[in-house]
């Protein structure tokens, strides 16, 4: 199969994730959309790795996974704290950090 198709898939996943980030309000869903975008990137990296015939892309994909994991930990913690204080997981309710 033509590896370029994987790239199309990655682009599709990324777009779905981006659209989710923009459209949805629930923080958890938002988070999952971000994860979706990250994984779309990973897919693209791996594909490129295959296309170019070296391992650079795969290494970066691992890095991304680690960072994403760390991000999830911190992010979920924040979301839980916000939920506790505001009883809502909507990101629109947490819009106070502006001037």
């Amino acid at each position: 199969m033509n590896p370029v198709n994987y790239l199309y898939l990655a682009a599709l996943l990324f777009t779905i994730g981006a659209a989710g980030v923009v459209i949805r309000r629930n923080a958890i869903v938002l988070f999952m959309c971000v994860e979706l975008m990250l994984n779309a990137c990973n897919l693209a990296f791996v594909t490129f790795s295959r296309l170019h015939g070296n391992l650079d892309g795969q290494i970066i994909a691992f890095f991304t996974m680690v960072v994403a994991a760390a991000e999830v930990v911190v992010g979920l913690a924040i979301i839980v704290t916000v939920f506790r204080s505001r009883h809502s997981a909507s990101v629109d309710d947490a819009s106070l950090m502006k001037l």
Partner: peptide
């Protein structure tokens, strides 16, 4: 310019995209 900062995460996301 401050008006652009409305505190909604998705607005920032759109501007990033």
């Amino acid at each position: 310019l401050r008006k652009l900062q409305n505190g909604y995460a998705r607005t920032y996301a759109v501007s990033m995209f």
